[in-house]
C-alpha cells in the first residue's frame, strides 16, 4: 500500500533507496510517497508543485505494478492540487517507460529528459494556431518585471529585423510584478510596433517546469541541464510551430545566470537552424537600463528618476494607486 513518508526513519530509508539507485535526494518537495513490502521500502516518489521527482522502484521489484501505483498517486495528487499539467525529469533511458504511462517527451538533453503527463504542449500550440504567420519570424522571451525602455528598445530593434516578432512574456508567477500586470504593461508598451505578436510562455519556456533554477538565480550544474532542456524544447517544438528562425536577446552585463543562458543558446540554436541575435543593451544617461534598477529606485522611493528608465505607460502604473502594494513590498524588502 502506498503511504506518505513523514517520519525520520521513513525519510532516511527513502534517501537511501534514492541514492542507491543513482539519483540525488533533493529537499523541497510537497509530498513524498513510499510503498513497503515485507516491512521494506521498495518504491518512492515525490512531488514538488507540478514536478514529479525522485521516482524509484527497487530493481528487484521492477516489472510489476509498483511504478504504475506510484505514478497514479503522484499524478492524482498533483491534479488534485490544481495543476493542469505535471512534469517529470528522468534519465534518458527511462523515457520509454514513462511514455508507456502516457507521459509525452518534451526534450532530451542527453543526460536528462523532461516529460509531461498528457498533451499540454500540443494543446497549447493548437490553441495558438491562429497566431502563426508566414515569413521570416523572430522571437524574444521576456519576464519584464516590470517593462522598461530597455525591453522596448529590444522589441523595436528585433521587430525591424524580421517580418513578424513573437514576443513571449514569461507566464510563471514568481516575480514581484504579477503576470497579468507584467503582460498588460508589455501590451501597452509595444502597441505601436505593428509586427509584434504578443503571447505568453505558458509552462514551456523559462517556466517552473522547464527551468526552475532561473527563478532562484543560481548557476550550477543542475541549472545548466535545465537551460539546455528549456532551449531544446524551444528549438525543437515551439520554434518550428511558429516558423521562428531568429531569437533575440539583450546583452547581459549583470546577471551571470542569464548570461550563461544566452551562451547556451548561442551554442545550441544553430543545430536547429535558428540564429541568436544579441542586441546591445540600451543605456540611460545614468547607466544600463534594467528592471532590477527600476525596482531599486522604487524601493528607495525615487520615483522622479524612473522617467529615464521606463516608458510612460509603465510609469503611469508604477506611480498609481494600484502599484502601492508593490512599492510597499519593495521598500519593506530593502529595509530588511
Amino acid at each position: 500500500m502506498i503511504v506518505e513518508l513523514t517520519s525520520g526513519p521513513d525519510i532516511a530509508a527513502a534517501k537511501n533507496l534514492i541514492k542507491r539507485n543513482g539519483l540525488s535526494f533533493e529537499e523541497g518537495f510537497d509530498e513524498l510517497f513510499g510503498i513497503h513490502e515485507s516491512d521494506e521500502l521498495v518504491a518512492v516518489g515525490a512531488r514538488a508543485g507540478n514536478i514529479l521527482k525522485m521516482l524509484i522502484v527497487e530493481p528487484s521489484h521492477q516489472g510489476g505494478p509498483l511504478l504504475g501505483e506510484m505514478a497514479t498517486a503522484l499524478v492524482s495528487r498533483g491534479l488534485d492540487a490544481g495543476f493542469e499539467s505535471l512534469f517529470i525529469y528522468t534519465k534518458p533511458e527511462y523515457v520509454r517507460t514513462f511514455e508507456a504511462l502516457n507521459f509525452t517527451l518534451l526534450a532530451n538533453q542527453g543526460r536528462a529528459a523532461l516529460l509531461e503527463y498528457g498533451n499540454g504542449l500540443r494543446n497549447w500550440l493548437a490553441a495558438k494556431r491562429s497566431l502563426v504567420r508566414t515569413g521570416m519570424n523572430g522571437a524574444v522571451v521576456m519576464n519584464c518585471n516590470p517593462f522598461t525602455k530597455g525591453h522596448l528598445y529590444l522589441a523595436e530593434s528585433a521587430a525591424r529585423q524580421v517580418d513578424n516578432l513573437y514576443l513571449f512574456v514569461v507566464r510563471e508567477d514568481r516575480s514581484l510584478f504579477p503576470f497579468d500586470v507584467r503582460f498588460r504593461l508589455v501590451q501597452e508598451g509595444v502597441r505601436n510596433i505593428s509586427n509584434v505578436i504578443l503571447l505568453d510562455t505558458s509552462r514551456y519556456i523559462v517556466s517552473g517546469a522547464t527551468f526552475p533554477t532561473y527563478f532562484l538565480k543560481q548557476d550550477d550544474p543542475v541549472a545548466r541541464i535545465q537551460m539546455e532542456l528549456d532551449i531544446t524544447l524551444f528549438s525543437s517544438r515551439i520554434a518550428p510551430f511558429f516558423g521562428i528562425t531568429r531569437r533575440f536577446v539583450g546583452t547581459e552585463p549583470n546577471c551571470k545566470l542569464t548570461n550563461s543562458y544566452n551562451d547556451t543558446m548561442k551554442r545550441l540554436l544553430p543545430d536547429y537552424a535558428i540564429e541568436l541575435v544579441e542586441i546591445e543593451r540600451k543605456e540611460a544617461l545614468s547607466g544600463v537600463i534594467s528592471a532590477s534598477r527600476v525596482r531599486e529606485l522604487m524601493a528607495r522611493n525615487e520615483l522622479a528618476q524612473l522617467d529615464d528608465y521606463v516608458p510612460a505607460s509603465t510609469l503611469a502604473f508604477l506611480a498609481s494607486e494600484a502599484a502601492e502594494p508593490i512599492r510597499r513590498q519593495l521598500q519593506f524588502d530593502m529595509r530588511r
Partner: peptide, 25 residues
C-alpha cells in the same frame, strides 16, 4: 477522477466545460 495508471487500466478525468470535449491518450 477515477482509475489508475496501471497496465490494462485507464485514468479518467472529467471536468466542467462549455462544450463536450473528449481527449484520448
Amino acid at each position: 477522477q477515477a482509475g489508475t495508471m496501471q497496465s490494462s487500466d485507464l485514468m479518467v478525468i472529467v471536468e466542467p466545460a462549455d462544450k463536450l470535449i473528449i481527449e484520448i491518450e
